[in-house]
Design a protein around this nucleic acid. Structure first.
Lengths: 163, 163
DNA sequence: ACCTACCGGTTGACGTGTCAATGATGCTAA
DNA sequence: TTAGCATCATTGACACGTCAACCGGTAGGT
């Protein structure tokens, strides 16, 4: 029994061919799913999923406004990314930025009426697309399993964060 | 029992709150997994996952060369995307392009020795990262389930391709 | 008071992706 | 023959993301 059943996990250096095949299908399919949803949203509303996240957060915020870094951490973006994105959204009139009254050197992000309207128009088709492309594609058991898989992957990402 | 148990699938317009929560975890986690793998590969080898796909295909091709559109369909990219990417890879000396002898107006993509070497150096760390971030994160049952979920999602993407 | 260190936010450079338009070339049908 | 027409590939314009540098202002320590 030389080296048989090697430690169940981590004994192996590399994935098997089967694991690799599943990996490729999994990562490519989820990426394709994301971009399909992106283009559905784009076609239905001229918003990107990034726009949608920002507008969703602002819609639910008090006074339809948030400080920039608060918004960034709420939707899990780097501040640089948010700053670039807000610049583009501001050019399109979806949001406004102004000096924050309470916090020095803070920037307040405000939802404009055009932004609120664009968000309202986008919500229903977006949720419908999620149902069609994700919920309807899977059995109830698979949806649960997908949630567990996502949780397990997230946990591993967190464990290996700093290396 | 007015409208109870509505047709099991498609009777509902919108996802439930639970489904939506799972959806968000799923799509965000898989996206994060992809970008973590991207940055691991970048750190280990100075290659992107796009570079890796191209180099993998060329490595396995006869004569370490393929026609451009052949390569595009092999890795599932649009031709425009591939053309841009090949331009960047050519600037870095990973590949070369030349007129195709057999096919008129065809471009032959060749793996350079530098490209082959970069690919060889990247393979092992990349596969190891896949094991650590994906295979090791899941139970064997979950890996199988992930494969089935990916297949089901892919099938739905194909069904809804043209709308 | 001064130096430093951090903090919130922006900017620039660059890689990446999509879309639409453009060559360049062969195929086919009036 | 020639007027389309499809095909192979590239290009330009633009959106998006990351990284590193930067700016202005506040806070702490000496």
């Amino acid at each position: 029994m030389t080296e048989a059943t090697p430690g169940r996990r981590g004994g192996r250096q590399l994935p098997t061919a089967d694991e690799l095949r599943i990996w490729r299908n999994f990562i490519e399919t989820t990426a394709a799913l994301g971009s399909r949803l992106e283009s559905r949203l784009q076609g239905d509303s001229s918003l990107s999923t990034g726009d949608y996240s920002v507008l969703l957060a602002l819609s639910e915020a008090e006074g339809q406004a948030m400080r920039s870094s608060e918004l960034a951490s709420h939707i899990g973006w780097e501040r640089s990314r948010l700053s670039h994105h807000l610049g583009r959204m501001e050019r399109r009139g979806l949001i406004r930025r102004q000096e924050c009254a309470t916090v020095p050197r803070g920037a307040e992000v405000l939802l404009t009426t055009a932004g609120a309207e664009a968000f309202r128009g986008a919500t229903f088709p977006h949720l419908r697309a999620i149902r069609e492309l994700f919920v309807d594609a899977l059995t109830p058991d698979q949806i649960v399993a997908a949630g567990e898989i996502a949780a397990a992957l997230r946990a591993q990402l967190d464990v290996l964060r700093k290396d």
